[in-house]
Computed example of a mutant assay.
Amino acid sequence: MKQIPLDLSADRPQSFETIIAGRNQELLQRLQQLLVGPDRASHTVSASTDRFLYLWAESGVGKSSLLQAIAREVGQHARLIGASAAEPEFDYTTQVSHYLIDDVDQLPEPTQVAAFNLFNQIREQGGWLISTGKLPPTRLEMREDLRTRLGWGLIYQVHDLSDDEKIAALLHAALARGMEVPLGVLQYMLTHYRRDMPSLSRMLDALDRYSLATKRAITLPLLRELIQQESEQQ
């Protein structure tokens, strides 16, 4: 069997059109309400804690995808900050309306201080701060001042999708890409591959590329070959 290089590390850019809400309908509606013009976002001075959101869930549920969707919708006025970010990325500017901190609970001590200062500046001068972590604020092991700030705003648990919702999400993504994927292939993927949506979405992308490269229809044997190749390359 010819080996074809696989790339199962890159995530497809997320948008609210590609996200299946499941039990997160209220959260998605709230996030979409934040997608207003940059003038309102960066210049409205208010101490309202509604402008601070904290999303928590275990890994693989979709917290990062939500931040990516916001960043895509807001564009240049959003700043997506990861746990390995340097301190300057936490500098406040009115050119940024939406600060999005992913895995805030993984920030090292110096950037926890920078995040705390950013929180205070947003509170005083305007904007929104949306952060994510694995646990609710009361259970986070981090600087007390930042942990307390995270608990000031709105707190949402991001719920995982059911198996049926994951299948629906994969079918929706496949149709959007013009892929013809039998239901049995998706069911097999869900039961014989990693179950988190980021991994399933990456496998769907890889399956699309593999089908085109081999000029074969997407079938269960093709998926099995691909899973076997990934196992051999790891």
Rank of each mutant, 00 (worst) to 15 (best):
I81H: 04
T138V: 11
Q76V: 00
M189R: 11
R216Q: 15
E165I: 05
P13H: 08
S84H: 08
D208L: 10
I20P: 12
Q125E: 10
S65E: 07
T132N: 03
L67V: 04
A78N: 04
L8A: 04
L170M: 14
S84Q: 13
S9Q: 09
A21M: 09
A83L: 08
D91I: 02
D160N: 02
E26V: 10
R195A: 09
D7G: 05
I218L: 08
W56N: 04
D103V: 03
L154M: 14
H172T: 06
P136Q: 11
V74D: 00
S201K: 09
I20H: 08
S199P: 08
Q229H: 13
A173H: 14
D11N: 14
K63D: 03
A176L: 10
G82P: 00
I70Q: 03
G82H: 06
P5N: 11
L129A: 02
L129N: 01
S42R: 14
L6W: 06
F119G: 02
Q76I: 00
M197G: 01
D39F: 02
A169N: 13
R143H: 15
P221S: 09
Q14H: 11
S201G: 12
R123I: 00
L129Q: 02
A169D: 06
R51Q: 08
H172I: 05
L53Y: 10
L212H: 10
L66R: 05
Q234W: 08
L100P: 03
E180Y: 00
I70D: 00
T219V: 00
S231T: 11
A213P: 04
L6D: 13
Y92I: 00
I20N: 10
T138C: 03
L66C: 07
D11I: 12
Q3E: 11
R40G: 01
R209L: 14
H43K: 09
L27A: 06
Q112I: 00
R51E: 01
Q29P: 00
I227T: 07
E87H: 06
T49C: 12
D50V: 01
A217Y: 07
L212V: 05
H98Q: 00
Y156L: 08
Q112R: 10
L175D: 15
I81E: 05
R40K: 13
R79F: 00
R72W: 12
Q95A: 01
S84R: 14
E230H: 06
N117L: 05
T111S: 07
I155C: 15
R143I: 04
V74A: 10
Q33I: 02
A176V: 03
Q233D: 10
H98T: 01
W56S: 04
Y156C: 05
M203V: 11
V185R: 13
P137I: 04
V185K: 14
D196E: 15
L190Q: 15
L200I: 03
G37N: 11
N117K: 05
R202L: 09
R23E: 12
Q157N: 13
L8T: 08
Q121N: 06
D7A: 07
L161S: 06
L207M: 13
G151F: 11
Q14N: 14
V158S: 07
A86Q: 13
Q29N: 14
R143D: 15
G127T: 01
H43T: 15
